[in-house]
Design a protein around this nucleic acid. Structure first.
Lengths: 193, 193
DNA sequence: ACCTGAACACCGTTCAAGT
DNA sequence: ACCTGAACACCGTTCAAGT
């Protein structure tokens, strides 16, 4: 075992990988996560086989983007606890995730699959996301701000539904709908937890 | 003008049209509204050109299905007013529409586009749907059960979001999420209308 | 008036051949 | 170890030719 395991990749391979990621980021933003892989390879200046060599499928590409290029989203979630009320923090997190997912049309669907399907390439990213969701949800529940029958899976699902809505309607209506949606999570007039 | 205008179509044309619709209904249920049109034509036993002759695009196909084969949904909506509380009627309508849209994966997105885009082939179907939504929403609002800041467009959007959720999660969770979603529409603890 | 199916453009995915 | 691009299968859409 002299240097096997994770080796440093060849310089041109690393560069090609990076180019593909950059092209995918742009294409996913402009045309959604269903954008043509051939187009992405073309844009990146590599052959289609090179793209497949680095990323065996669309999920792997999306997962790599989240892990390597969208770190800010997760960092934002890590810094939220303690700032403002627990409900405000949870709401801010839902807004950040749904806004991010809406910027990549179709990502919300992938994030739903990744949450359930352990074999999904996006499962790790989802686990990291829902860990944050769980922390913020627990705090909000303990503060008595959110109903007891709302699970982490529920918040994850509603956050992605908010992302889906944001893809469909103008921003102002999306904000309003998200607010209504959060309203459904809050403890009610009858004091139900 | 002796017999021009809407003429009775040739018998074989009518039969082909019907066969395409039946095949599309099945394919859309099994594979979603993105199902292969070539596959639908094959299943219907007609050439691909025949399908295009009757339905110039996917939207026309979906619209025809709603108009000609899914009459029950609209009839259900017409019979709802007056049965039970206004909120229960609105909830039942949202449940029926979202359940229907979830059975045809992707239809929810088309129904959102059809609502806004007047040129959409689905615009008429959406108008008919939202007319019912408006009646039931007005009644619920007048009964003081639903907030004043909830528009017909909002209910339409949330209904389709519920359909999207139903495509993503198991039925029990979908029911729970739909309930939470409706909860956000109700008048609140502070008596806000 | 309607139907047929070839034709064109495009894409996802694999893999033998190269360097 | 990685890259290339041809090859295969499939699809959306159009349209000239048939009946």
């Amino acid at each position: 075992m002299s240097g096997t395991g994770t080796r440093r990749p060849r310089a041109d391979a690393r560069r090609n990988r990076e180019r593909v990621l950059a092209a995918a980021d742009q294409a996913f933003r402009e045309q959604g996560t269903g954008a043509s892989l051939e187009g992405i390879a073309r844009q990146a200046g590599v052959a289609i086989g090179t793209l497949y060599g680095h990323f065996p499928n669309r999920g792997a590409l999306s997962a790599a983007l989240l892990r390597e290029r969208h770190v800010a989203l997760f960092e934002f979630g890590d810094e939220l606890p303690g700032h403002g009320t627990a409900l405000a923090a949870l709401t801010a997190w839902m807004g950040a995730v749904s806004g991010h997912a809406a910027a990549y049309r179709g990502l919300a669907t992938l994030l739903m699959q990744g949450f359930t399907d352990e074999a999904s390439e996006l499962h790790d990213a989802c686990a990291r996301m829902t860990a944050t969701t769980e922390r913020l949800l627990s705090a909000a529940r303990e503060a008595g701000a959110v109903r007891d029958d709302v699970s982490t899976a529920d918040v994850h699902a509603l956050t992605n539904a908010a992302a889906w809505l944001r893809e469909q309607v103008p921003p102002e209506q999306a904000d309003h709908l998200t607010a209504l949606l959060v309203r459904g999570l809050r403890t009610g007039d009858d004091g139900t937890r």
